[in-house]
Design a protein around this nucleic acid. Sequence first.
DNA 1: GTTAGCACTCGCAACCGGAGAGTGCTAACA
DNA 2: TGTTAGCACTCTCCGGTTGCGAGTGCTAAC
Lengths: 347, 347
Amino acid sequence: MDMDARKLRILRAIIDDYILTGVPVGSRTISKKYEMGLSSATIRNEMSDLEELGFLDQPHVSAGRIPSAKAYRLYVDSMLQAGIIPDDSAESVLSHFSGRVHQMEEVIDHAAKVLSSLTQYTAVVLSPKGNEPRIQTIQMVPVSAESALVVIVTDQGLIRDSIIRVSSEVDGDTLYAISRTLTNELRGSTLTDACGIMPQLIRRMDGNDEVLRSLYGFFNEGKTVTRSPHVAIGGTSNMLSYPEYSDVDKARNFLSLMETRDKLADIIRGSGEMAFTVRIGPETGVPEMADCSIVTASYSTRSGQQGTIGVIGPTRMRYSRVISILNMMGHELTDMFSGEDEGKRTP
Amino acid sequence: MDMDARKLRILRAIIDDYILTGVPVGSRTISKKYEMGLSSATIRNEMSDLEELGFLDQPHVSAGRIPSAKAYRLYVDSMLQAGIIPDDSAESVLSHFSGRVHQMEEVIDHAAKVLSSLTQYTAVVLSPKGNEPRIQTIQMVPVSAESALVVIVTDQGLIRDSIIRVSSEVDGDTLYAISRTLTNELRGSTLTDACGIMPQLIRRMDGNDEVLRSLYGFFNEGKTVTRSPHVAIGGTSNMLSYPEYSDVDKARNFLSLMETRDKLADIIRGSGEMAFTVRIGPETGVPEMADCSIVTASYSTRSGQQGTIGVIGPTRMRYSRVISILNMMGHELTDMFSGEDEGKRTP
DNA sequence: GTTAGCACTCGCAACCGGAGAGTGCTAACA
DNA sequence: TGTTAGCACTCTCCGGTTGCGAGTGCTAAC
């Protein structure tokens, strides 16, 4: 026995119905609601076959059937192959970015919010992650008599800034001079490189040791800090709307997973830097998410870094809708981040 | 009939027990567990009185009593008056800030995490909010051939930065020169002021119109953006551990409230800039929080801005513990932000 | 191959009844 | 007059039972 067109049609109807209602679906429902031209008894036989093939599960004997992870997988794959994407789909995502100027992190936060409110699931947006950024400009700005702000611009437009102490004798012009020299010496290096070079620079540029040493310290810290990307989450509470999470313990587990951003980032990014991923149930590899699905897409910035956006929902997710929304949002973000003014734009 | 010492002692026992167990407490429990030297019957009479006085509620006739908001209020007030604070309280909060250097926002995020894990409730930390910041230094740093980074240092150490377009003819030294002039002209102004001054500056400093106009635009945006403070939340999932939130609907309401950061910030800050607040149940003024309590404390930075930290928990909160932890955390943050290096430190 | 019919299986909601907790009241006691 | 023992009463909670409805699987007829 194997799959034929009719089995497929029936399976599809079952999945559609289950996604809609969330309750096990019976043979009668299929035969009536989706005019198949078949009686419930026939459907019943087919369903029995489908169960044997591993596409359906039966919570208990007298309930209807529910689709298995394998079924969703088939469903999603065939949908993607057929290119059925923007069908029941999203209004333009575009309109949700209002005519304001955005900082990178704001865009990301906002994207998570929009994504969750459009999908009614939980959304996660990761900031782009690329190679270690390379220094482009270093500038120190006096802040008070005793402290200065260090700004480092990198090739990724990423800016690390921090305040360091400087002795009160060093004035703005001196800082500017030092900044210029440093920029010349360190342009193109990574922060890690910079840490290697600094000691000899300190020896060479005698005077202003204090400032240089502070900077050295700053580089050292910066090395580690730069790595962790920004993670924005939206609509965690949406999950609780679904009967799958009416169990409070389950909900709590899910929420605490959402709270550990690092772990969450790993999970979302789990599938490498693929342009597009759908992971269903066990495929997520996370026990806590055994009955969740994760759909991710990626976006990229002008400098070629990859960021990831993802939606987490119950396995009976409205895949086509989610996929289409993610698609649009991915493009939207890519556009936004490849504008002339990297990291911001005025629409 | 009015309160006497015995009634108070009994009320206190009831509250203690209820905070511990979360279930309505009966007369027998009080008379046995807390050696009162009184029979359950006597306690019963007193409890009846206490109910009449509005300190106790009875979910139904054959359940025990639970403390009312009024009772908690009395409890907290008497506790505060007596100065009973660091009793059953926190190990040093200090140890939780490991020996690393922190950026303001990181400190705040971290504080929320620590606070929630110490209290087992939900914690909220707001970044300091003061008057509109005043410009101290303006600096532009070339980023690419066509764009520059603007950094504005304010008296609050608050830094606004953004990327603006500049034409390719303008080199780094020119930018530095313009920056110096602007700093001289605008030092001490707020961004709002700056917007007023800019037009005439543009007229006076002829040449480099483009750069100045871009800056003007940036000031205009900055005015509005600067206002929204950073809000860090920790331990939202903790709330679901308490039977009060075993109802999924309630939990969802609570969570979506936590997601709207602006509203949350308003609520937390709701009680003005008091050094210390305890709002119990209805006192929060938020219907969704009718059976929550909010305890807040404030911290301040060197420049005198006030930030707020808060803990949200069920009304049967372990007040003394929470208050003591908040106290310590408040001091800790104040110390951290009044160090020489405003906004960061190396312990 | 399809379908009607039927017996069978479960889950679920409603119902019932007893147990237990806790109260309020009354009457006795110090 | 305050305290306590005793008792009837009220509710909730829990376990067991029952009936209903949904849905299946099988068989026999078309």
